[in-house]
Design a protein around this nucleic acid. Sequence first.
DNA 1: TTCGTCAGTTCATTCACTGAACCGACCGGC
DNA 2: GCCGGTCGGTTCAGTGAATGAACTGACGAA
Lengths: 184, 184
Amino acid sequence: MGMALGKDYAGQQCALARALELVGERWTLLVVRDVFYGVRRFSDFQAHLDIPRAVLTSRLTALVEADVLERRRYQESPPRDEYVLTDTGRALWPAVFALAQWAIEFVPSAAGALREFVHIPCGVIVDRSGLCPGCRTVAPPDELEMRPGPGILTHTRTDPVSLALRSPHRLLEPLDLSGVAKPA
Amino acid sequence: MGMALGKDYAGQQCALARALELVGERWTLLVVRDVFYGVRRFSDFQAHLDIPRAVLTSRLTALVEADVLERRRYQESPPRDEYVLTDTGRALWPAVFALAQWAIEFVPSAAGALREFVHIPCGVIVDRSGLCPGCRTVAPPDELEMRPGPGILTHTRTDPVSLALRSPHRLLEPLDLSGVAKPA
DNA sequence: TTCGTCAGTTCATTCACTGAACCGACCGGC
DNA sequence: GCCGGTCGGTTCAGTGAATGAACTGACGAA
């Protein structure tokens, strides 16, 4: 996943093995999920995931290399880059969504949906397979709004990124951190 | 992926983190995929995946512990067990399928579908999101037949398990190894 | 008795993750 | 010009997981 000692699965001709070589290492899929949620900056990933900086650097570099993320300069002086999903990266949404839904339904410690996803054109919540009950299609991430679900826990994670993620917003749109206080 | 040094993602309240704690380690999802394909026995996993035995032992134990697999005695003397998916495990199919489809579409080295999945009641191939074009529902794994696809490579992997996986058969059904020669 | 299979365990080595410290470019205040 | 702070890293020592080879033990077959 996470994963260690040789990220490749030599000899496996299966497509799944190829996928896991790119996104199967530890932390990688959590970083990708965060980008879907609107996190774009190095320090925000770090604050939200508690991931060692060296590992975050390595994962971001690998994801850019794999054409899942694009690194984009959003200001000069000081030079600051943000990481956004490419088309390839956005295509990972069904896999990320499916894994999260599996945990919600079958992993006891993940009981209760922390978030709901509303298909904006139809205004209804997508079902566990990602289908919109309104239009009967699989909703793409850029048409989804994320909202806190019934299982949301407000007592944990008081970092600014987690706080910002508790208010509804459209997937892929940059996170608005202006409304939250800095941590002590 | 896999994954090393602490398989948990402490503090992450997200369901995805819970899922990755159970199936995010290196090799784990490939083992699960193999069970969907009909592999059930220790030595068959080992032959097909080239996974170190100690790691396989550890992964199978963890998957049983997580209620993804069930370990079942299928003969006494010598005692032999097989590993089969629980309901929880079978629910992982959409995630496994979604990841594999992503690689087929977007990872250059995985070009060409190695396998096709036919929704048996309808007799048609499911699309990239797992939907059956016939009945417009998401096909469950026990209603799918796996067949070699156009991208299949016949020159690699000559172990008996890989050979057996090249002939069509229904998912979750045990693999038939009787027709293939043993390796030299 | 000997050979082979199956399902492991043990062990030394290799290598990735971790956490803390360090670094350099820049900005704002004084 | 100096000081403190932020951002986005890199470096490094220590730890612990993965690897691959060797070993084990129960059994069946010849």
